[in-house]
Design a protein around this nucleic acid. Structure first.
Length: 511
RNA sequence: GGGCCGUUAGCUCAGCUGGUAGAGCAGCAGACUCUUAAUCUGCGGGUCGGAGGUUCGAUCCCUCCACGGCUCACCA
């Protein structure tokens, strides 16, 4: 790592010695064992392949057919119970663990003595026959064992495992080795993502890759990461959404299109937010937000069944039922139901501001009250009174135009849009709308966003001229939706923190 | 960014009103041919996160810093 330029230090044998001394006793023991193996011409790091005929779960599943048959397995030594002239190893592979029984009769005296010098953590190959011990444990009786990789570090404690959250996230490989639940969560993550792709691919969506680097970060309200292109001598942003590019694809004639990948938002980090996170956005021509609602509930239920076997899951002790149809409620009705405030009768912005003062909504508002519209205040009331109450999957429909700059207005009510968000366990899971395709209105909306920016909202949408130009070419009526994939995975894997569903969450480097 | 909490052996954790540190697992040596958190005997292993301060003396009290966890704010 960083043994860099200290002019007072001279690279020498003394340095090597000091580094040696920095190693723990256990590290030295393992390095000595490695050196002895290498000196004897048995370098475990020179091993190239191992033929795995079976995995642990398969042997247990097919025991009756495999009993007394030879198998070849490989994996990491998780425990070593040496009882003298025989020993037991717990071998862990991709699927779990299988016990290996070894003695001098099976391996020969020399090989048996050799294997006894191996360590917990080493990766080994085993050939032998399948049998069941007197205690009933399905095992492999070893005939031949090869040390395939030497572990120079001891593993965490075998019973308590690796608990320290910092170590679990920084050294996820150890977390995966030690905590089977972690492997299970990430296998489910893959199953969920595959299910989403399957669901959309079967419905003739095409998957595309839109740019991560661009000169404008738009399509969402968020602060972007900034980077620099040396070749172009240009400041670039990492994308905060894929929306504006996917709509260009719809303009171009891709009637059903999606992009599932990383977005980057330069915001706070907590149990629900990682700076890079996986989002799917999908767009369907000749559809509206009601079609998106059906797509959302059906696709999520499909993914839940594929990953967990059921559309009902338990999340943090609460059963969540993703079976369609999900509850539908307008934002106005939700605020009335949970906050007792009726916005239907509010005539203008000033009347809404009066309500905001009365109900103490200042904390929820992004700007000064005098700059707030009725829509801003309705949304604030929703966030304060209703959002956290929406535990079962719920579509909240009809968002104020002021906070929905890319959304088509509701017929007959220009203050509201054809937009919904799906809430689960009080958290936003999906955001969808009938896409605004009028380029003239779209330009006005961006102008309004520019004014918001001047009022202090540094997350207001940036104007993208080429996107407007694409709308001028003509985008059919289109429904679009974004789903926070990590959040969906959290619900379906009962994960408390987003860091438990991202293999390598963003961390500060530790010195 | 604010508040609270944490950082002690490779890992999981103790450590009393301040007197220079313990256990279990892991390791090393030995015993044991059906164990599975194997068991039994013996032994070694520490920059107590870092830097200052108070004190005769600091793992312990104070200050600052680093990293992490929770939480509030912001956001998805």
């Amino acid at each position: 790592m960083s043994h860099e330029t200290d002019p007072n230090r001279v690279e020498s044998e003394a340095d090597d010695a000091s580094r040696e001394r920095a190693l723990s006793e256990q590290q030295l023991v393992r390095r000595d064992k490695l050196a002895r193996l290498q000196a004897a011409g048995n370098d475990p790091f020179a091993q190239l392949t191992w033929k795995q005929t079976h995995h642990s779960a398969g042997i247990k599943r097919d025991f009756e057919a495999l009993e007394n048959q030879d198998v070849s397995v490989a994996g990491r030594v998780m425990s070593f119970r040496d009882i003298g002239k025989a020993a037991f190893i717990d071998l862990q592979d991709r699927d779990g663990r299988i016990q290996v029984y070894l003695n001098a009769e099976g391996l020969g005296d020399d090989a048996y003595a050799e294997v006894k010098t191996w360590d917990v953590g080493d990766i080994v190959g085993v050939e032998g026959y399948v049998f069941r011990t007197r205690r009933g444990e399905i095992s492999v009786h070893a005939k031949r064992m090869v040390l395939l990789t030497k572990a120079l570090e001891p593993l965490p404690e075998k019973f308590h495992g690796l608990k320290d959250p910092e170590l679990r996230y920084r050294r996820r490989y150890l977390d995966l080795v030690m905590n089977p639940q972690v492997m299970d969560t990430f296998r489910k993550r893959t199953a969920i993502i595959k299910a989403i792709r399957q669901y959309l691919d079967e419905r003739e969506y095409i998957e595309v890759d839109t740019p991560i680097l661009s000169t404008i970060a738009s399509g969402a309200a968020a602060r972007p990461f900034v980077t620099t292109s040396n070749a172009l001598n240009l400041q670039l942003y990492l994308r905060i959404a894929t929306e504006l590019y996917l709509k260009r694809c719809v303009v171009g004639g891709m009637e059903r299109v999606y992009d599932m990948g990383k977005n980057f938002r330069n915001e706070g980090i907590d149990i629900r937010h990682n700076p890079e996170f996986t989002m799917i956005e999908l767009y369907q021509a000749y559809a509206d937000y009601k079609d998106m609602m059906e797509l959302c509930e059906n696709m999520v239920a499909f993914a839940a069944e594929k990953a967990t076997g059921s559309a009902k899951v338990v999340y943090q002790g609460t059963e969540l039922d993703f079976s369609p149809p999900w509850r539908r409620v307008t934002m106005t009705d939700a605020v009335k139901e949970y906050g007792g405030i009726d916005f239907a009768g509010v005539k203008d912005d000033e009347a809404a501001r009066e309500l905001a003062r009365k109900h103490g909504l200042d904390a929820e508002l992004k700007k000064k009250l005098k700059d707030c519209t009725k829509g801003d205040i309705l949304n604030a009331a929703f966030e304060k009174f209703a959002e956290s109450k929406l535990i079962q999957p719920t579509f909240v429909m009809d968002y104020p135009t002021d906070i929905s700059p890319l959304t088509k207005q509701k017929p007959g009510d220009p203050t509201m849009t054809e937009r919904f968000e799906a809430f689960v366990f009080g958290r936003e899971l999906a955001n969808a709308y009938s896409e605004l395709n009028d380029p003239i209105v779209q330009r006005e909306r961006f102008s309004q966003q520019a004014r918001e920016r001047e009022l202090g909202d540094d997350e207001a949408y940036m104007l993208d001229e080429d996107f407007i130009a694409s709308l001028e070419v003509g985008m059919p009526p289109t429904g679009g939706m974004g789903i926070g994939v990590d959040r969906l995975i959290m619900f379906l894997t009962d994960s408390y923190s987003i860091r438990d569903v991202i293999l390598f969450p963003t961390m500060k480097p530790n010195s």
